[in-house]
C-alpha cells in the first residue's frame, strides 16, 4: 500500500512537459515536490496565479502571495497574476491541461464526491465544482477504502456529488485505475505488494481486469 507521498509520486509520473496544471489541496499539493525538474510545467492557483513556486524561506514570506490552501508561496520567474474571474475563465475555458484533486468517493461512471458530508460540517465546494466540470483531464488522488474498510470506489456515490461523469483516472493507495466512458474501473497497475485479489475486495464498483496487471514502478 502507498502512503500519501507514494500516491503523490505516482501521480507525478502522469505529468508531461508543457502542461498547465491545477493541484488541489492535500495529497495533490504534494505532487509538485515530485515533478521531474527536467519538465517545464506551470502550476495554476485558483486564487489568481500561474506559476506557483516553492514555499518561501522565512524572510521571503509575503501575505499577498498565497495558494488555494491559503499557504504562503513564491512565484516562478515568468508568472502571471490575475483576478478570480480570469482564473475560472481559464479553468472553464479548458485551458488547464490537468487537474489533480482529492475525493471521498468516486463512482464507476466517473462521478466524484468531495465537498460535503451531510449532517457533519459543510465547508463548501470552493473551486472543485468548476474544476471537475471543465477540466480536460482529471486525476483523483484518494484512499481506496475508508478507515473502517468500506470501499470508496463505488457503483454510485452515496455522498452529494461534486460533478458527474468527469473523473478519468484514479491513483489510490492500492492501484491505478481508469474509468471507461460507458462505466467501470479498469485496473491498470497495482501498488507494490498489493494483489489483484485485494484490489477486487476493496472495490465495490465494477472492476475490469484484463491480462496481467503490473506493479507500479518508481
Amino acid at each position: 500500500m502507498l502512503d500519501k507521498t507514494g500516491i503523490a509520486k505516482r501521480i507525478a509520473q502522469e505529468v508531461k512537459d508543457g502542461m498547465y496544471i491545477n493541484l488541489g489541496i492535500g495529497i495533490p499539493t504534494l505532487v509538485a515536490n515530485y515533478i521531474p525538474p527536467t519538465l517545464n510545467v506551470v502550476l495554476q492557483s485558483e486564487n489568481g496565479l500561474l506559476g506557483i513556486g516553492p514555499f518561501p524561506k522565512e524572510n521571503e514570506v509575503d501575505p499577498d502571495l498565497i495558494n488555494a490552501g491559503k499557504q504562503t508561496i513564491t512565484m516562478m520567474p515568468g508568472s502571471a497574476l490575475f483576478s478570480s474571474a480570469e482564473s475560472f475563465a481559464m479553468i472553464r475555458g479548458g485551458h488547464v491541461d490537468l487537474t489533480i484533486l482529492g475525493a471521498m468517493e468516486v463512482s464507476e461512471t466517473g462521478d466524484i464526491a468531495n465537498w460535503k458530508v451531510p449532517g457533519k460540517m459543510v465547508k463548501g465546494m470552493g473551486g472543485a465544482m468548476d474544476l471537475v466540470a471543465s477540466a480536460k483531464h482529471i486525476i483523483v488522488a484518494m484512499q481506496h477504502c475508508s478507515k473502517d474498510g468500506a470501499s470508496k470506489l463505488l457503483k454510485t456515490c452515496t455522498l452529494p456529488i461534486t460533478g458527474a461523469n468527469c473523473v478519468k483516472r484514479i491513483v489510490s493507495d492500492m492501484a491505478v485505475l481508469d474509468i471507461l466512458p460507458e462505466g467501470g474501473f479498469v485496473l491498470r497497475e497495482r501498488a507494490p505488494g498489493v494483489s489483484v485479489e485485494q484490489i477486487k475486495n476493496a472495490t465495490e464498483g465494477k472492476l475490469i481486469i484484463e491480462g496481467i496487471i503490473p506493479e507500479m514502478r518508481f
Binding site: E46, S83, S84, A85, S87, F88, A89, I91, R92, D111, M125, G126, G127, A128, M129, D130, A133, S134, P160, I161, T162, G163, A164, N165
Partner: peptide, 28 residues
Amino acid sequence: PQGTLAERVRAGGAGIPAFFTPAGVGTE
C-alpha cells in the same frame, strides 16, 4: 462554486443578467 461566484459578481458589474456554466450540473 467559486468560479460561478466570481462570474456572477462579474456579470453583475458588467450588466449581464444571466449566463450558462457547466459547474454544478448534476449536483445539488
